[in-house]
Simulated assay, not measured.
Amino acid sequence: MKKKRYKNKGLKETRAGFGKALTFLGRTNHKVVALCADLKTSLFMDKFSKEFPERFFQIGIAEANMMGIAAGLSIGEYIPFAGTFANFATSRVYDQIRQSIAYSYKNVKICASHSGLTLGEDGATHQSLEDIGMMKMLPGMTVINTCDYNQTYAATIAISNYFGPVYLRFGRPPVANFTSENQIFEIGKAIVLTEGKDITIVSTGHLVWESLEASKILYEKKGIECEVINVHTIKPLDENTILKSIDKTKCIVTAEEHNYWGGLGESVARILTTYHHNKKNKEYSIIQSLVAVNDIFGESGKPMELLKKYDIDRNSIINHVEFVLKNKKK
Rank of each mutant, 00 (worst) to 15 (best):
V93D: 02
I97E: 01
S100G: 05
G116Q: 03
R92M: 00
Y105S: 08
A102C: 01
H114W: 06
Y94T: 06
V108K: 11
V108P: 02
I110W: 10
Q99S: 12
K106Y: 10
G116N: 02
V93I: 15
I97D: 00
Y103M: 12
L119E: 06
S115V: 09
L119G: 04
L119W: 11
C111P: 09
V93A: 00
R98G: 01
V108I: 04
V93F: 09
Q99D: 08
Y94Q: 11
A89G: 11
Y94C: 09
S113Q: 06
S100K: 08
I110H: 02
Y105W: 10
C111I: 08
S104L: 13
S104V: 14
D95T: 12
Y105L: 12
R92T: 00
S91M: 14
Q96K: 02
N107S: 08
G120I: 04
L117Y: 03
N107C: 01
S91D: 10
R98P: 01
A89D: 09
R92P: 03
H114C: 13
A102D: 09
R92D: 00
C111E: 12
I110Q: 12
Y94H: 13
K106A: 02
S104H: 13
A102H: 04
S91H: 14
I97R: 05
A89T: 03
H114L: 08
S104K: 05
L119Q: 00
F88N: 05
S113T: 08
A102P: 03
R98K: 12
G116T: 04
R98F: 00
V108A: 11
I110C: 11
S113Y: 10
Q96R: 03
A112L: 07
R92G: 00
S91W: 14
A112P: 13
T90E: 06
D95C: 09
K106N: 06
Y94W: 11
G116K: 08
D95H: 12
Q99W: 14
Q96A: 02
S104R: 09
S91P: 04
R92Y: 00
Y105E: 07
A112R: 02
C111K: 15
L117P: 03
A112W: 02
L117H: 15
I101K: 05
I97F: 12
H114T: 10
L117T: 14
L119T: 11
F88E: 02
I101P: 01
T118Y: 14
S104F: 13
A89I: 01
A102K: 00
T90A: 14
K109N: 09
A89H: 05
S91V: 10
H114E: 08
Q96W: 03
D95E: 15
A112D: 00
R98T: 06
S100W: 07
G120V: 02
F88L: 10
I97Y: 06
Y105G: 03
C111A: 06
N107F: 10
V108M: 07
S113H: 04
A112S: 10
S104A: 08
I101H: 00
S104D: 09
C111T: 15
K106H: 11
Q99M: 15
I110A: 03
L119R: 06
H114G: 05
S91G: 07
A112E: 05
K106F: 07
S115D: 09
Y103R: 13
I101T: 01
I101F: 04
